[in-house]
């Protein structure tokens, strides 16, 4: 089948403003959008720029807006997009070139919630143990691959870049509810600020956008409940 792919193009060194360029190419239903972009770059237009790395839905590099939805290009099939595909960079972040956005504000928020295990107690002889039930509490949020699909689909983040965003809250959730971690209070204090969880208006865009199917809005709700009740388990 012939597929038409319309791609957002912007080179700040040459272009005054962004534009769209349309490419036509042969594809089969099981081709991924990433395959199409690779074909365009390899055979039609070598100037096209986009991020990709593992190409198997794990690294999160190729997150982009495909037909209006934040998706990983490596997990989106032509069968699901149809023969006309519009590809844009993620919204809410500065475009560096074409489909490449500046991820630094995203990672700054991610770092702000201290996404690492904090436990100053003396190390046990073996590993820090945890029951299956204790692990299950935060199992969902361990799946995050930091692709930024959630944060850049959030209207609150579009409105203001200072909002920590769903991905950072997911990262915080992963450690707040980890029984081995001792810094839940510290993280909750950060999320209790004006740019923390209260900017979430439960729009559910993040949950819809997550390529790992993490129940992000639910996780944010659990953080709000932890703030209210003080219960972590």
């Amino acid at each position: 089948m012939e597929v038409t792919i319309k791609v957002f193009r912007y080179n700040p060194e040459k272009d005054k403003k962004p534009s769209y360029k349309t490419y036509k190419l042969e594809a089969i239903e099981t081709d991924r959008v990433l395959d199409l972009l690779e074909k365009v770059k390899g055979y039609q237009d070598g100037t096209l720029s986009f991020r990709r790395s593992c190409a198997h839905g794990i690294c999160g590099s190729d997150a982009m807006r495909i037909n209006g939805f934040n998706r990983l290009a490596c997990k989106t099939l032509v069968r699901d997009t149809g023969a006309t595909i519009i590809v844009q960079p993620l919204l809410g972040l500065r475009v560096i070139k074409d489909l490449i956005v500046d991820m630094e504000p995203f990672f700054e928020h991610y770092r702000s919630v201290k996404p690492w295990l904090i436990n100053d107690e003396p190390e046990p002889e073996k590993e820090r143990t945890q029951s299956a039930a204790q692990r299950a509490i935060f199992d969902d949020t361990t799946k995050c691959i930091l692709c930024a699909c959630c944060t850049t689909s959030c209207p609150s983040f579009w409105a203001n870049e200072q909002y920590v965003g769903p991905a950072a809250i997911v990262a915080a959730h992963r450690f707040i509810f980890d029984s081995r971690d001792k810094a839940a209070a510290e993280r909750l204090k950060i999320l209790n600020e004006v740019w923390g969880v209260y900017r979430c208006h439960t729009v559910f865009n993040c949950t819809m956008a997550c390529p790992r199917e993490i129940q992000i809005t639910k996780a944010i709700g659990e953080v709000k409940m932890a703030l209210t009740t003080g219960k972590l388990e």
């Binding site: 839940a184 209070a185 204090k189 209790n192």
Partner: peptide, 20 residues
């Protein structure tokens, strides 16, 4: 399984929390 109780989270009593 827990040897030490986890740190109690700071309950929010700021404007944003109260209005929420």
């Amino acid at each position: 399984m827990k040897e030490h109780p986890r740190t109690a989270p700071q309950k929010g009593f700021n404007f944003d929390y109260l209005m929420w």
